[in-house]
Amino acid sequence: MMINKYLAIVSHKSVRIACTGLLAAVCAASAFAHKEVMHERHEGFEDMGGAMKAINGQLKSDAPNIAKIDKNAEVIAALAVKVAGWFPKGSGPEAGKTDALPSIWEKPEEFSKSTEDFVAASKALTAATKGSDVAAIKKQFMALKETCGSCHDSFRAD
């Protein structure tokens, strides 16, 4: 008798709608929670790409402007330390449009090693850009570029 009454309530249309609504709201809230960090990381990677492009442009020229290279290297180094924090669990493809691969959360040790390599390379570049040795800057820049590429190979779609 009690069970029947209970079933009658659960199967009631308005209750079902409310439950579905609640579930949708929970999903939306969790997606929304990551929206901000996903936006920040997108902007951050875009700024680092811009800085990479600017440094590369200087290094390709006949007379590289080391002050400009240093400024952009500092931009990368300041953002590099944030990368590890830009990928909270649940901020992958399930949360919206992103090229972040699920492998980031499936292989957390490898991913964190990648971010550490990146931070180290960015610091090595800013150390080099304090000097005037263009060849040394180029060497560190290429090493930094390698860390971008190797991480993208494993953890970024396409």
Partner: peptide, 22 residues
Amino acid sequence: AIDVDGFDGGPFADYLSFKTSR
């Protein structure tokens, strides 16, 4: 065009910002 790392790209990408090129 320019690749995602902001490193390799087409010869005319040099004249554009990274965002435009992307």
